[in-house]
Design a protein around this nucleic acid. Structure first.
Lengths: 145, 145
DNA sequence: AGTGAAATCCTTTATTC
DNA sequence: GAATAAAGGATTTCACT
């Protein structure tokens, strides 16, 4: 992993639709040279994909929360991510070391939707939950340093 | 906010570099009609931008953690996000309701880098910290449902 | 809001170094 | 690996509906 590739990654992390022409100007390479490098970064999985960043508040889901989950039955198989993947409000799911087993990040429209979601999470996974409400997002998923 | 715009958003959330031509085929609109809609979604801020999704493990930062922070001096002004924005390892910063005041999501290379980062966080913001290590990421920032 | 067409610009591949 | 060139597509603007 070398300087030019890192520069390409950081440019694309900040501006995912930048053209190969502009990437070439920014890196001092020809269009086809950056093109070749980007395709290699994609095929090696260093670039996992591209995403539009959505304003969820404007889209009608202003309420973000973290839900920490603890298994009720310790003998239950550890398949929580699969059990929870069907719940579309769950944006992220991390397995963690600490008091709880998983942390979920969710987005809903209203507190009542959160109540409903918590019931679905408990039922789908047989877990107890602890919820931390997000008051504001100072920044999220900043591009590379 | 209506069906066609929601479809465009969900297509671009999943594939941020999809061409206007392909968006047109997927929505049944002409290229110039989707183009106009996407530009409107961008200017209204519903699309905040586009990002390449990076594999941080391959990029040399395999260790992810959540750091919850609690102010030591309750009289201190509440400017933690500004104080912390200079620390590049902090990917996200949320203000939360609950026992702690903020949750940070960070990425570093090694436990020793985490130790170093925690010292910088405490010094920059005059806070106590509680760290939860991520063991694995089942999924993260899933596109829209 | 949407279409179709035209000009411009970008992407992609082949060739060469 | 990188550059150049050329063909094939995509983007963007505009006139019209």
């Amino acid at each position: 992993m070398e300087t030019t590739d890192r520069l390409i990654l950081s440019l694309l992390a900040a501006e995912g639709r930048m053209s190969f022409t502009d990437l070439g100007k920014a890196t001092g390479l020809s269009t086809s040279a950056v093109h070749q490098r980007v395709k290699r970064l994609e095929s090696k999985g260093l670039i996992r994909g591209y995403a539009a960043l959505i304003d969820h508040e404007q889209l009608g889901r202003p309420l973000t929360a973290f839900i920490s989950i603890t298994p009720i039955d310790p003998a239950q198989p550890d398949d929580y991510p699969e059990r929870l993947v069907e719940i579309p409000e769950i944006e992220s799911c991390w397995s963690v070391a600490g008091e709880e087993s998983y942390i979920l990040k969710i987005r809903v429209a209203t507190p009542s939707d959160l109540e409903n979601l918590l019931a679905r999470v408990r039922a789908a996974a047989n877990v107890s939950t602890r919820t931390t409400i997000v008051l504001s997002t100072a920044y999220e998923n900043r591009p590379l340093d």
